[in-house]
Computed example of a mutant assay.
Amino acid sequence: MKIRFRCDPALLGHIPAPVPARAALPDWLRAMPATAASELHGGPVRTVKQCPPFVDAMAHGFVIPLPCDVRVAGGRLSWDWDLPAPSLPAHPRSPLSFHAPAQVEGSPFHRADRAIVKFNSFWTVELPPGWSLFATHPANREDLPFRLLTGLVDADRFTAVGILFPAQWKDPGFAGVLPRGTPVAQCFPVPREPLDLDVGALDPAGAEAYGATAHALLSTPGTYRRRHRARRGRSGALEAPAQGAEIEP
């Protein structure tokens, strides 16, 4: 599927482009061990690094990267970004803004000590007809100090401006730098056609296949990867350089 991204002409080459999620896998995933000791099992067990569904979820779709370094200190978010002036009216200049806490009152995201920040997007997204864009927190990225609010956008019709990504700032004590390129949203196209749910009992052939597959999964490590996992293509990432402002979350 071709996904079309466009930005303000004055900013092309000054902002990082969306990248395939596979190109933005975190360093901790690469560094973590493939096996670990388990007292419960009395020996080594495979870690999630060897779990294809865990890794494939993190590598699925594309990610929207943070366009510049954002410093976090004393409850303040700040940045120093030498961004050219956008040529389009009402175009954002800051990498993020915020929502009023009342906008999530009554939901699990409402906490007096946690801000709702909004990651501004500098890219429009256009999908083929009939497809929507599912945008969510980067999969399995509990290391990030925010939690993106999941949304679904009809990005075959809403294509003229960028999509904004709200998130709960979940770690008030975080201090440091969110580096340029940090994934702020993981996105993938989903079809808008209605679901047709067919629910029933396994027939004899299905029951036999269940038993054989369950036995293979329990007795032979790597069965899913070798027999059932679809082959995935690989793609690369893009890069580019980085105004001064600050807000209080």
Rank of each mutant, 00 (worst) to 15 (best):
M1I: 14
I3Y: 05
I3A: 13
C7W: 00
P9Y: 04
L11A: 03
L12T: 13
H14V: 05
I15G: 05
V19S: 04
P20I: 00
R22W: 00
A23F: 03
A24M: 02
L25Y: 07
P26Q: 13
D27Y: 01
L29R: 10
P33W: 11
A34Y: 13
A36I: 05
E39S: 06
E39C: 00
G42L: 14
V45P: 00
C51M: 07
C51H: 15
P53Q: 12
F54G: 10
P67R: 06
C68W: 06
D69H: 14
G74C: 15
G74L: 15
R76S: 04
W81Y: 12
L83I: 05
S87Y: 01
P89V: 11
P95F: 08
L96H: 03
F98K: 15
A100G: 09
P101S: 11
E105I: 00
P108I: 10
F109T: 03
R111G: 01
R114W: 05
A115K: 01
P128F: 03
P129T: 07
G130W: 10
F134Q: 04
A135L: 08
N140G: 06
E142Y: 10
L149E: 01
L152H: 07
R157M: 05
I163E: 02
L164G: 01
F165C: 02
Q168C: 10
Q168T: 09
K170I: 14
G176H: 12
G181Q: 04
P183G: 07
P189S: 04
P191C: 13
R192A: 12
P194F: 12
G200A: 03
G200R: 08
A201P: 01
L202H: 05
A207T: 02
E208G: 07
A209W: 03
A209F: 02
Y210I: 00
Y210R: 14
L218H: 12
T220D: 15
T220V: 15
R229H: 10
R232E: 07
G236Y: 02
A237G: 09
A237L: 10
A242N: 14
G244S: 15
G244W: 06
E248V: 02
